[in-house]
Amino acid sequence: MLTIKNLSKTYSNSVKALDEINLSIDAGMFGLLGPNGAGKSSLMRTIATLQMPSSGQIEFAGQDVIANPQALRPHLGYLPQEFGVYPKVSAVDLLNHLGLLKGLSDTKARKRQIDTLLALTNLTQHSKKAVSTYSGGMKQRFGIAQALLGSPRLLIVDEPTAGLDPQERNRFHNLLSDVSENTAVILSTHIVEDVSNLCPNMAIVNNGQIIKQGRPSELIEQVSGTLWRKQVSKQDIEQHLAQYNVISQRLVAGRAEIHVLATHQPSSEFEPLTVELEDAYFAYLNLANKNQLRKEA
């Protein structure tokens, strides 16, 4: 459905945000994981026709999106990471407006869908209030509603659950899951759990490059047996960081636990780690960063 080939983007200030990205995305949820500044939002904006790439191709259903952005827009639902709204315009009016801009000219159908979306995002009782007065979570829910207007075949959601409480987050996950049956949904996030729970396919982005893509289980499988854990005292952390290839550290019951990437058990004090997607994610980031350093050296 969506094919991205050798996509690069360098901003006018010479920052290279995307570097030879290649992706192929079909209907269903596709997770895009990456740290802050990795290039996820740049990729989203480029796919969403909001910015021109420096080079590369984007095709949607066989149509060249870069040459003809209008080919994608009728089928696009987009929830940016950050967005604003017009002051003093109510949610229902703004949804109505965006619906008309998307081509929902049938008044009854548009109204019905808006009512449904407001209910699904739990905004019905606030639908007459200006969106500009909404709290962060409400505004994010409004963003979800507007992205789903019409019949998007490609839904791009950038950090959609930021600011949502757990209940709303679950509701949104269910909604996305429903939508993704016939729609390609690109879920950009740095919350590994969201990808883990929702996405049958995913990619990890770092420094503007796709460093890994595949099914989450495959990504986990590929690093199984190379990850180790050890609980250490806080004063020993520095020494372990210097000595081992530490990919992450966390607190477990008040004690520090380090996760180490190594082909063999680093020492007898280390135990094999039951790999989860987050560990795999850190492992791939670690490997990518090392490769980068090696290249620069």
């Binding site: 998307k102 081509g103 209910a119 409400m138 019409g150």
Partner: peptide, 26 residues
């Protein structure tokens, strides 16, 4: 700023509505 309280969701399931690309829609 007010935040909506958590309510039980009894909304209709999401249904896509086809868009119109005619002149009248434009």
């Amino acid at each position: 700023k007010k935040t909506s309280p958590a309510v039980t969701n009894n909304a209709q399931p999401y249904q896509a509505v086809p868009i119109n690309l005619t002149w009248s829609a434009k």
